[in-house]
């Protein structure tokens, strides 16, 4: 499979503070990549740089062989979609109207939404299991429903590369698993920032961010080895085989009462 997303010598800064340096990344077409790391390690910043919303302080991002930060916004939005973390949405917007924002790169800003667009919106909402909520104002949705509406907005943008920032936040356990299955079935290249190491373990490969650097992209078993988890997150983890599926899971040992946060 060919390389879809490539980053070389990437450095990202927030203000004057460089939070990631010398990052290297080769994501193959159709892969699902999980990005994990402790709070404040720069997961969101990295995703915004990979989505072309933020310029890197050094290095390049190539998507399908094209330098991402050289593209116009409309061209870029047809190659990469980013679903950022929870944002406050305009109170009177309907769920369907939020999803329709994902069609912006394909239509003129003065045009309304036609029947074909409406069908695309309905299909995207159905994919996230919210088919009958299209007419609901977003302010009346729960946190989990809102996350899924935003995910549908990313889906309807039908970009070959999809970046999701903490897409499982606010979702109950079943919807978390459903979301992971959904993104794996899209047939697109997907990069997700995740908190949950168990979910990250279901990705093809995992990128661990630690102290301003990224460990090499590796399959979950290797990337989330107990030694790595201990060094990066400061917790002890024991790999356990799931009695039914045979998959390897990480069992996290509780902290001692006296240990510092």
């Amino acid at each position: 499979m060919s390389v879809h997303l490539r980053a070389e010598g990437l450095a990202c800064a927030v203000g004057n503070r460089v939070i990631l340096r010398d990052l290297r990344l080769d994501v193959r077409e159709g892969e699902t990549i999980g990005i994990v790391g402790p709070n404040g390690c720069g997961k969101s910043t990295l995703l915004r740089v990979l989505a072309g919303l933020r310029a890197p302080t050094a290095g390049h991002v190539h998507v399908g062989g094209v330098r991402l930060h050289g593209l116009g916004s409309r061209q870029r939005a047809r190659k990469v979609a980013l679903v950022a973390q929870e944002q406050d949405l305009p109170a009177d917007l309907l769920a369907g109207e939020v999803v329709a924002l994902g069609l912006t790169p394909y239509r003129s800003p003065w045009n309304g939404v036609g029947p074909r667009e409406r069908a695309a919106v309905a299909a995207a909402l159905a994919e996230v299991g919210l088919a009958d909520l299209a007419d609901r104002p977003v302010e009346q949705l729960s946190g989990g429903e809102r996350r899924r509406v935003l995910l549908a907005r990313g889906l309807v943008q039908r970009t070959p590369l999809l970046l999701l920032d903490e897409p499982t936040n606010h979702l109950d356990v079943r919807h978390q698993l459903h979301l992971m299955r959904l993104v794996r079935r899209l047939g697109r290249t997907v990069v997700l920032a995740l908190h949950d190491l168990t979910l990250a373990a279901t990705c093809d490969r995992v990128l661990v961010l630690h102290e301003g650097r990224a460990l090499p992209l590796a399959p979950p078993g290797e990337a989330l080895a107990p030694a790595v988890v201990s060094a990066v997150f400061g917790v002890d983890a024991i790999p356990i085989r799931h009695p039914v599926t045979g998959d390897t899971h990480l069992l996290i040992t509780p902290l001692h009462p006296e240990s510092a946060p």
């Binding site: 939005a77 047809r78 980013l82 950022a84 944002q87 406050d88 949405l89 912006t104 003065w110 907005r153």
Partner: peptide, 25 residues
Amino acid sequence: MLAGSGWLDALASGSDTAASVGVPV
């Protein structure tokens, strides 16, 4: 403003969303 109404919709939803859907924010 009407000619750019689609972009204004995206802008009202936040600058990250707007930029992600291809609006020159």
